[in-house]
């Protein structure tokens, strides 16, 4: 589904933030992208979406991330931003949900049908007509996920999906993410959530892959995590 070959990304010439990364993500996999601040997680996400220029080769479902393919690629990749306020820019939840599908050629009626189906699946039907600025933090995060799901992406990229949420809403978001059938790439410092939602973890450190393997193995490796400025998930550190 996603294939990266020798990918490097730089904001300034000669100072790459992502350094010669290569990995492959299969369809249906759920991958946690973890690493300390500045490790390059968000930069990598943006490169996958074609928001930042990268050297090397990034393939999404066999298509190279390049200008001509961006509309098709962005239709396959759904990106949930860390700050839901930046994602929800339309007046109501429903308006936000039909925004993407209609940009891709669906009629209003078709887009609303898709939106209603997604809201029903997430048990959020009552949010449809709500004004975005009147949603609570948890509702807004769920609505942001719904806006992306309405585009029926094959891959979900999520940037810190549980940040700034109270425990109750965090659990709702985790359960929702866990129930989604799409291929998922999740960046987060919430390692308990990664442990719950992901089967595989890629640990980034200084723009390179420090470890890549089963979540249950990497997230239990205290020495590895501490060597890269991280800690064991709380649920494991108590054991």
């Amino acid at each position: 589904m996603l294939d990266l070959q020798n990918v490097s990304v730089s904001y300034e010439k000669g100072k790459p933030v992502i350094k010669d990364l290569s990995f492959h993500i299969n369809k249906g996999e759920s991958v946690g992208l973890i690493g300390a601040n500045g490790a390059g997680k968000s930069t990598l996400m943006k490169a996958l979406l074609g928001l930042l220029p990268a050297t090397g080769r990034i393939l999404v479902d066999g298509m190279a991330v390049e200008k001509a393919n961006l509309p098709a690629i962005r239709r396959r990749l759904g990106y949930v931003l860390q700050d839901s306020d930046d994602q929800m820019f339309m007046p109501t939840v429903l308006d936000d949900m039909v925004f993407g599908p209609m940009n891709y050629g669906l009629s209003r009626a078709e887009a609303e049908e898709k939106a209603a189906a997604v809201l029903a699946r997430l048990s959020l039907s009552d949010l449809a007509g709500r004004q975005n600025h009147r949603l609570s933090g948890g509702e807004k995060r769920m609505a942001a996920i719904a806006t992306v799901l309405a585009m029926e992406p094959d891959v979900l990229l999520m940037d810190e999906p549980t940040s700034n949420l109270d425990p109750f809403n965090r659990r709702i978001v985790i359960n929702t993410i866990g129930s989604l059938p799409q291929t998922r790439i999740i960046t987060s410092h919430d390692l308990d959530m990664i442990l719950d939602c992901c089967t595989r973890v890629i640990l980034l450190s200084d723009g390179r892959i420090a470890a890549d393997g089963p979540a249950g193995v990497i997230l239990r490796d205290k020495a590895l995590l501490e060597a890269h400025r991280m800690e064991l998930p709380l649920s494991l550190s108590r054991l």
Binding site: L49, L51, R74, D83, G100, N103
Partner: peptide
């Protein structure tokens, strides 16, 4: 920075300067 995030969020959902929605 925030405006860029907002604009990126629009672009990632197919916005290209027209308003079909």
């Amino acid at each position: 920075d925030r405006a860029e995030d907002l604009y990126n969020s629009m672009r990632l959902r197919g916005f290209n300067g027209d308003f079909p929605y």
